[in-house]
């Protein structure tokens, strides 16, 4: 299993799917570990009732069906699929509505879904998902990207209430690819994934949704910053180590 995770750290993000199915077939006895530990690009289904799309993940799956956050129904339909309690479903509905607005403000498009379920220690777990196709044929407003996808998975474990405070533990993963392609510079593609955790103890006075939302917003900004400045920055540094650009400066100055 360690070796399998080692491979997943090295295989390019665009091959995640292929790599995962290869590992599943090589190590069938570890399939549940693999499926829970390897993050895969998010898939989408259309809710037949509302006509809206929703995101599939392990958390809204029961057998081979997935529960839509919009109609609370399983697709394909499932007689006795597990459902959250009424109270939690109410919070889930609200979270889906608000998170859709949040998603629209930051992503200018995309799809979001929120799923919640009770856990064993009097608290609950919430999973916030966002999928954005930023390519010019998708929802890339500016049309810069030949290919561009952002898949975010935020899982928050919410502990039981203690003296008006609650512990929140957030685990977030972002997977992305972006490819530009033009005549003069060829194809330029960056892809990858990172995962981070954050724990906070917050007052429940503001409500769970407000607390979870703030944590996710902070985390998403951090992840975006890390990818942009640190991860992309490191690959840029590597390019400059391979072929330092000093020569560019020397040649360029007299020209300009």
């Amino acid at each position: 299993m360690e070796a399998a995770m080692g491979l997943m750290r090295r295989i390019p993000a665009k091959h995640t799917d292929t790599a995962l199915s290869a590992l599943l077939s090589l190590m069938p006895s570890h399939s549940s570990d693999l499926l829970s530990q390897v993050d895969q690009p998010l898939q989408v289904l259309c809710d037949v009732d509302s006509g809206k799309e929703f995101i599939l993940c392990e958390y809204n799956r029961d057998a081979d069906s997935y529960r839509s956050p919009w109609s609370n129904k399983y697709h394909p339909s499932l007689e006795d699929g597990s459902l959250p309690s009424l109270a939690l479903r109410k919070l889930e509905v609200e979270a889906n509505d608000i998170f859709a607005i949040y998603r629209d403000q930051y992503y200018e498009g995309g799809i979001s879904s929120v799923y919640m379920w009770e856990d064993d220690n009097e608290g609950f777990v919430a999973c916030f998902l966002i999928k954005k196709d930023g390519s010019k044929t998708g929802q890339g407003r500016r049309g810069y990207l030949e290919e561009g996808s952002w898949d975010a998975i935020h899982v928050i474990e919410v502990g039981p209430e203690e003296e008006e405070n609650t512990n929140y533990r957030l685990t977030s993963t972002v997977m992305l690819t972006l490819t530009t392609n033009n005549e003069s510079s060829g194809t330029f593609s960056l892809s990858g994934s990172i995962r981070r955790q954050m724990t906070m103890r917050l007052s429940v006075a503001d409500g769970h949704l407000c607390n979870m939302g703030r944590m996710i917003e902070e985390m998403e900004s951090k992840l975006r910053y890390s990818l942009d400045q640190v991860y992309f920055g490191k690959t840029r540094e590597m390019v400059c180590t391979l072929r330092p650009p000093s020569e560019v400066a020397q040649i360029r100055i007299p020209e300009s």
Partner: peptide, 8 residues
Amino acid sequence: EGNVQLDA
């Protein structure tokens, strides 16, 4: 702590 690749 991640896996990011440039492919140009």
